[in-house]
Design a protein around this nucleic acid. Structure first.
Lengths: 231, 231
DNA sequence: GTCTATAACGAGATAGAC
DNA sequence: GTCTATCTCGTTATAGAC
């Protein structure tokens, strides 16, 4: 009986993976707005109603793809951080940024799914939050590490932003100075501006050596959050 | 005959505008990927084949909407710059950035059309380039102005980026120092990271006072391109 | 209990004859 | 321009196989 259950569970995992793989293929071909349960089922030789055993609705399939994408990106970023060795926090920062860019270039459609235009009629549920937070948590960890070791370079925050910076810090990293947390959140958003512009064609005819440009830009982002770049 | 031609021309302009208005409405409701000539025609009480007298294809309608969106954004940015009065370049910079954010919040679907995920199967023609460049040209003008008056604060560029920075400067603003042009292009992309994150929901549960946060972030972007912020 | 298949719904797109 | 016949879609109800 335990083997029978194991086999069932295994089959279920396999079919679920096959559905998501095919859905990802269609994502690349047609975009998230046109993702069709029927087409996925047809391509897999199943009938559309059978898919509902695995995903209760089209939106649940979308949610699963979104969580997978966030996790895949988070894993790539964490692996880059772990693999860079014992270097200065600024270098860890740059390595993680480059991993984000590399993942985005390798998975453009999944990137568009999580950081591009929202899918009309779809609203991401709470369940996506943990996966979506992984890269941000990693950045916070890097800055926290720098802060513990040497402190971070002092930056300032305008009086206007001070209460909001304090609130963000209390929420995200109570052990870090509010102005650093505010700079960190801004750098986080700005990183995705750089990646998105390259990926979505805004750099065409403008930036040619994108790798060098990106490395330079994210190095300055690191300085912006107070990390000291060794030269 | 000249009045008849004038009336015809006027009617053509009106119908064209009505088609684009309805298309924009559908953009908001369904997204660019599902923009359908038929639905537009139905809503206008026309038959789909009649639309082809105004737009030879769905892609041409999309192109017209994209150019309109870029122009609307560019106009808002230019108006903000003109309306801010005779202030320091850094303040002009911030005013333009805030105009970009304001326009994006007021026209989220058009923003998604031009700066969000690419529409599957659609590739923007050359004709969109001038409209798409307006905001960038405005930023270059602001930095150029600062450079002519007082010079801009000196920044550095890594050896790795130097040739690319030189190339970009030759292309975009030969009268500006290459490292300034490189910083400008990066700030330009980063601005849209900030706007996109707010618009597409990435700041939910993270940033609350978005206006203050944005003003602070783009002020630091201005510093990054060498503009001196008066306090 | 777990899955798949058949059939159907209401809504919308599409193609072509007229 | 109009009408119609035929597609697609997400989703559900139902019945039967393992």
């Amino acid at each position: 009986m335990s083997t029978a259950q194991g086999a069932r569970a295994r089959a279920r995992i396999e079919v679920t993976a096959a559905i998501k793989d095919e859905a990802r293929r269609q994502l690349a071909a047609e975009g998230a707005a046109k993702l069709s349960l029927r087409a996925v089922a047809r391509e897999l030789g199943m009938v559309s109603s059978a898919l509902y055993r695995y995903f209760p609705s089209r939106d649940d399939l979308l949610t699963a793809l979104i969580i997978d994408a966030y996790d895949s990106l988070g894993e790539a970023a964490e692996a880059a951080d772990a693999g860079v060795g014992d270097v200065a926090p600024a270098q860890r920062w740059v390595a993680v940024c480059e991993a984000v860019r590399g993942w985005a270039l390798a998975h453009p459609h999944e990137y568009a799914l999580i950081y591009g235009s929202p899918v009309p009629g779809y609203s991401a549920p709470e369940a996506t939050v943990p996966a979506a937070s992984r890269v941000g948590v990693l950045f916070i960890g890097i800055v926290r590490d720098a802060h513990r070791r040497n402190g971070v370079a002092r930056t300032s925050v305008s009086a206007e932003l001070e209460p909001e910076a304090r609130r963000m810090a209390a929420d995200l990293a109570p052990d870090l100075p509010p102005e650093v947390v505010a700079a960190l959140v801004a750098a986080w958003a700005q990183l995705y501006g750089l990646v998105g512009f390259e990926l979505f064609g805004q750099f065409n005819r403008v930036v040619e050596d994108r790798e060098a440009f990106f490395r330079h830009a994210v190095t300055r982002l690191a300085e912006g959050v107070g990390l000291v770049v060794p030269q």
